[in-house]
Write a protein that binds this DNA or RNA. Structure first.
Lengths: 195, 195
DNA sequence: AAAAAAAGAATGAACGTTCATTTATTCTAT
DNA sequence: ATAGAATAAATGAACGTTCATTCTTTTTTT
């Protein structure tokens, strides 16, 4: 195996150790010593791959955000109706969140905690532009309410994080029925209602 | 001034110091030494009022949750329509979040981070029962969708936290127009649509 | 004077990070 | 093709600092 590949493996082992530790005890639960132990590596080795702890967390954030965005826009086509497009993206997102539990709850932790640099946050947001473009199209077509993207996001995407959270605590099961109801609620909050 | 009053003042100074420190740097930013310094108190004194750090944070959570609930149900009457009642509660909540910025973002940090005991969390939830009762009434009357309370909360209440967050980062202004649009989105997501 | 409250100094443990070395790999010269 | 030199990767121990918490002493209240 090439050196480059081995490096990539180690880097990703470190990221995944951090992911799991942050999820189980917040950012202060992911000490460099623990990360090193879980990744089967010396603490010093972390600093060969990351500048410091902040850099480690930032890079993890970007990595996870890219995975999320990739999944979200998989199979996304523009030459169908806005609602169909949005539905596709919405279900892609919820599938990702269901299948990649740890990644999803890490992202929602990041959204409400000062653990990520504002600069890194903005960088992560860029990966969501196809969604914003779709909304723009929907607004122009009169399909989607002419309100700010923050509102659209808050009501049609953000709620998923809450539901995920509840499911992770064993309080609520996100089966197909609930998912359908959830999508209906999401759409109901942003559609322009002339349907 | 009586000793009891002085005690209450000191306790609340400690809580408010913790609140502000947690908001500015997460839970690990609120070290006991810093909390003591901000509250103008010796570190040892904290332990006269709280068992340990976890207890301090838990009690802060409950305190803030009670304030929030009190504000939420202020002027709440049952002998008006479900929509009017909900509207009242919704605007109460958003007013609280706007006027008590720190409390609000602390609560949303708590929701997405393992910083609060599950037991304490459940205790905090109890204060929201009037809202759940209202939803039940709305469902029975056919006004509100017959879906789980988690869904109702996720789509009609939870999004406020996101918008607050954006406003705090200076990305979005929650003026009257946006608030109205926000309420419309909230109601659109949960109402049974025969209106 | 007795009791309760608060203070500050001190505790060991854990933190993020760096250090001097060792181990593994790659390159060069024969 | 291979021995030896150079480079890169990885290590465990150790750094100073900060952490949550406790202990002893001083101050305040009754």
């Amino acid at each position: 195996m090439g050196q480059l590949q081995k490096s990539k493996i180690k880097r990703s082992a470190l990221l995944s150790a951090t992911l799991s530790l942050v999820n189980n005890g917040g950012i202060q639960g992911a000490s460099m010593a623990k990360v090193a132990k879980v990744a089967n590596v010396s603490p010093a080795t972390i600093y060969l791959y990351f500048e410091n702890k902040q850099d480690l967390v930032n890079q993890l954030y970007l990595d996870v955000k890219v995975s999320f965005a990739t999944a979200a826009f998989e199979g996304y086509e523009q030459n169908i109706t806005v609602k169909k497009s949005f539905e596709r993206i919405w279900y892609n997102m919820s599938s990702f969140k269901l299948e990649h539990n740890e990644e999803a709850s890490f992202l929602s932790q990041c959204d409400n905690t000062p653990m990520i640099d504002e600069k890194t946050r903005q960088e992560g947001l860029l990966h969501m532009t196809p969604l914003f473009d779709l909304w723009l199209r929907g607004i122009n077509e009169g399909i989607i309410k002419d309100i700010s993207h923050y509102l659209l996001y808050a009501y049609s995407i953000y709620p998923m994080a809450f539901l995920m959270n509840m499911q992770n605590r064993g309080l609520c099961e996100l089966n197909d029925k609930v998912l359908k109801e959830s999508f209906e609620a999401a759409w109901g909050s942003i559609c322009a209602k002339q349907e």
